[in-house]
Simulated scan of single mutants.
Amino acid sequence: MPMAADEIAAMIRENIPDAAVEITDLAGDGDHYAARVTAESFRGTSRVAQHQRVYAALGGRMGGVLHALQLTTAIPD
């Protein structure tokens, strides 16, 4: 069963409370999304660490319920 975009965003915000999250369904199938996550708490961390935080927030759903996530992380201007 695919994940809804709002469910993905909610999971990220729950675990990264200062995150601004934008989710785009890339294929219209609920399995392939793009996510842009912007958070001040990313400041001073590597891109790899930022991505690891987002994947951890998804609680192991990557590769299972959530097939593909094109992830972009950023720090607010």
Rank of each mutant, 00 (worst) to 15 (best):
R36A: 10
S41Q: 12
V54D: 00
F42P: 09
D6T: 08
M11L: 15
Q52V: 11
T73K: 00
R53S: 10
L26Y: 12
A57K: 07
D29L: 14
R36P: 02
G30F: 02
H32P: 05
I8P: 00
I12Q: 00
A34W: 08
V54I: 14
V65H: 12
V65E: 13
A4G: 10
A49T: 13
A56W: 01
Y33E: 00
G64T: 11
D18S: 04
E7H: 07
R53G: 02
I75W: 06
R43T: 03
Y55G: 04
D77K: 09
L71Q: 01
T38C: 13
P17C: 14
R47N: 08
A57R: 07
D29H: 11
A39G: 03
A39C: 08
Q70P: 03
M11S: 14
P76S: 09
A5W: 01
M11F: 09
A35C: 11
D77Q: 10
D29T: 13
A39S: 15
I23F: 06
Y55R: 15
A27V: 02
V65Q: 15
T24Q: 10
I12E: 00
D18C: 03
R47C: 07
I75G: 08
L69W: 10
Y33F: 15
I23S: 09
A39T: 08
N15P: 04
G30M: 12
A5V: 05
M3P: 05
V21C: 04
L71C: 10
H51F: 02
D25N: 11
V21R: 00
G60E: 07
E7Y: 01
A5Q: 06
P2L: 12
M62N: 07
A20R: 11
A27W: 01
V48K: 09
H67D: 04
M11T: 01
G60R: 06
L69F: 12
I8Q: 00
A74L: 01
F42D: 02
A10D: 15
A49P: 08
G28M: 04
M1E: 06
G63Y: 14
M11G: 11
A5K: 04
R13F: 03
P2I: 10
P2C: 06
Q70D: 14
M3W: 09
E7G: 10
S46F: 10
M1Y: 08
R61H: 13
R13W: 06
Q50I: 00
A39F: 06
A19C: 06
S41M: 06
E14N: 12
A9L: 09
G60I: 05
L66E: 02
T73N: 05
A68F: 07
I23E: 02
Q50Y: 00
M3I: 15
T24H: 03
V65R: 14
T73F: 02
